[in-house]
């Protein structure tokens, strides 16, 4: 349903990605003064706390919920945010969940790049266009490295955290598209209509991440 217009104007709805980021996000937000605790393992996807509702989502869905205003704010990786193409405010770099989006090829590959496998078609397209590389993009959902190893693609664009998966598969990073960390994202109208709650939260998060 539509976000209830009867909701207490001070109430916050937050969109958080399930999984590992959720724990870090809850820890950081409670340090910043929100009355949140890690929800018990359960099938519940919506968690109620005093004055705050937490929606537990797939990370690609966080920018959608925030842009459309169903959630007032959320936490999501910059990689997912760029790929979403959504126009939300991103006032704080939370400096965790660090990784980089890289162009990866088999060690020693030096032929033209004609086909690129990726979970990030928008970012890959922007990168390739900026370099004038007329490669085809194949949208994949997981284990992107295999695309390179099987000849489905002659390069892949994927996230790299430590690089150990690459080394184990005889792959190497050729270039870095961008570095990503978790961001606080805020709906454009909510930042204004709920600023009594959001502004102090932003300030506190900046202090905690020392900016």
């Amino acid at each position: 349903m539509t976000p209830a217009p009867t909701r207490d104007p001070g109430h916050l709805t937050l969109a958080l990605p399930k999984g590992r980021i959720l724990e870090d996000a809850i820890a950081l937000l409670s340090q910043a003064g929100l009355p949140l605790t890690m929800p018990e393992k359960s099938r519940a996807l919506r968690h109620e706390f005093p004055g705050v509702t937490v929606l537990e989502l797939r990370n690609q869905d966080v920018p959608v919920y925030v842009d459309l205003g169903v959630a007032d704010a959320g936490i999501v990786g910059k990689d997912v945010l760029i790929e979403s193409g959504r126009t939300v405010y991103e006032p704080v770099d939370l400096r965790f969940a660090g990784c980089r989006l890289s162009l990866i090829r088999e060690v020693g590959a030096d032929g033209d790049i004609t086909r690129v496998g990726t979970k990030y078609p928008r970012a890959a397209r922007t990168y390739l266009n900026a370099r004038g590389i007329p490669a085809e993009i194949v949208k994949l959902s997981g284990n992107i490295e295999l695309a390179c190893l099987t000849g489905l693609a002659d390069a892949v664009v994927d996230l790299v955290q430590t690089g150990s998966t690459l080394r184990a598969n005889n792959l190497e990073e050729v270039d870095v598209l961008f570095h990503s960390t978790a961001r606080l994202v805020v709906n454009r109208a909510a930042l204004k209509t709920r600023r009594e709650r959001l502004r102090p939260l932003i300030e506190r998060l900046r202090e905690l991440t020392s900016q």
Binding site: P3, P5, R7, V70, N187, R188, A189, T193
Partner: peptide, 9 residues
């Protein structure tokens, strides 16, 4: 103009 509870102008 922002209406309360509606996160779109």
């Amino acid at each position: 103009a922002y209406a309360p509870g509606l996160n779109q102008p």
